[in-house]
Design a protein around this nucleic acid. Structure first.
Lengths: 227, 227
DNA sequence: ACCTGAACACCGTTCAAGT
DNA sequence: ACCTGAACACCGTTCAAGT
């Protein structure tokens, strides 16, 4: 009544790039990246698919924008923390973001240019290392090592055929039953005695590798010739 | 002439699953995974797309088979080497395989079941760690850490918008020119003083992270309570 | 047993036409 | 300036029909 729009008429909020990106991300989160089509995205926004092209150049532009929006969610390394604590916090935040948006892991494809949030993120990570006493070369090595680990972990986590603990147990039981134990003895052992333990969750493996790498980087940093 | 097939008639080799998989892999290697369509694959094999369904269940089955074929290319860890040397060799071989078939990196999607080559590979890696003195839990940690790093590295490498050194230099110059140096100072520094050095190649970063992780795993192994 | 042609329900994207 | 309907060139997959 207070609204100037006619009663019963669909309250159509003006379309813009941000709303298109946010809705696309929500669709990909809910149904996987393969469920994100221009027609479905239009429908979700109460508009024909063709209207989307007034706000994005094409589907690749849409995907690039979605990736940059995910990077914008990552907590930047704090200047007040020391490099290791700062990098650890942002790494956990990075992995959380990839966990919320699993499709982002595989989408970093060739030719997709980094957006502003991505560039800011990279700049801050490198800055954290440089200010923490890393040489340029060692900072480049460290950046590559940590981010490779995070991306790869997120990808492996995504490729697991289960998410909850109960599903994992069911799945592992099933796999174990199918695995010829004499053909894959070590896999069978690991599944039976590790994966099938109550409370197992692959996600819990993340901190081990992260701290392994951060501790090793600290040693490499300390071993640098004094500059 | 010596052939029993009629002159001029297309020499049609009998279709089978292996030939379908091999041709699909060649197509994906050459033109990217998005260029692999059932119709194009049929054409390449001299057959209508519909005929493929006599040898594969559907496209997902095709992709699963392709992934397993990539795993079959990876050098299994050798029993004669010690765990570290064996794991290092297979890790380099793993990365090489992902480098030859970049599409395989992103394809490990949820729901895709591991094939026999994949299972054998996993079994041998875990076996190498167990025989090298790793507890079950530490073997699981180590497996996750190393393979996450390899996958993530391959993905980052794939997402670079260049492959050769000259392309990299051109690209970096371009990026540097576009980067507002006062907005992304550390990124600008790293690009100017590291990436733009002659001979830079992101792929060369691989051994640093790999050895960082393997050395750290050795320390973790040695720190285990004697069993 | 294997291959094919036609058909179905989808895609991303263009373009002229509407308001 | 933004939205739409019709159309184009594609997809994966089914099914009955051929050999």
């Amino acid at each position: 009544m207070a609204s100037p729009s006619k009663a019963g008429a669909p309250h159509r909020v003006r379309l813009n790039r941000e709303r298109v990106l946010a809705t696309a991300i929500a669709l990909a989160d809910a149904g996987g990246i393969e469920s994100l089509t221009m027609r479905r995205l239009g429908e979700e926004l109460g508009v024909e698919a063709m209207s989307l092209y007034n706000h994005i150049a094409n589907k690749e532009d849409l995907l690039t924008g979605m990736i940059d929006a995910v990077f914008a969610e990552i907590e930047l390394p704090s200047h007040s923390d020391n490099w290791k604590a700062a990098l650890r916090k942002r790494s956990v935040s990075f992995r959380d973001a990839l966990s919320r948006h699993p499709w982002a892991t595989a989408l970093k494809d060739s030719g997709t240019n980094p957006g502003p949030a991505t560039l800011r993120h990279h700049d801050r990570v490198i800055g954290t290392l440089r200010n923490g006493g890393f040489s340029i070369a060692l900072a480049a090595h460290a950046f590559s090592a940590v981010d490779s680990y995070i991306y790869g972990f997120a990808m492996q986590e995504k490729s697991l055929p289960f998410t909850t603990d109960e599903e994992a147990a069911t799945m592992a039981h099933l796999m174990l039953a199918q695995l010829p134990a004499n053909e894959y003895p070590y896999l069978a052992e690991l599944t039976a005695e590790y994966v099938l333990r109550p409370g197992y969750n692959y996600g819990n493996e993340f901190p081990f590798g992260l701290d392994l790498i951060l501790d090793a980087l600290e040693r490499a940093r300390d071993a640098q010739p004094a500059g």
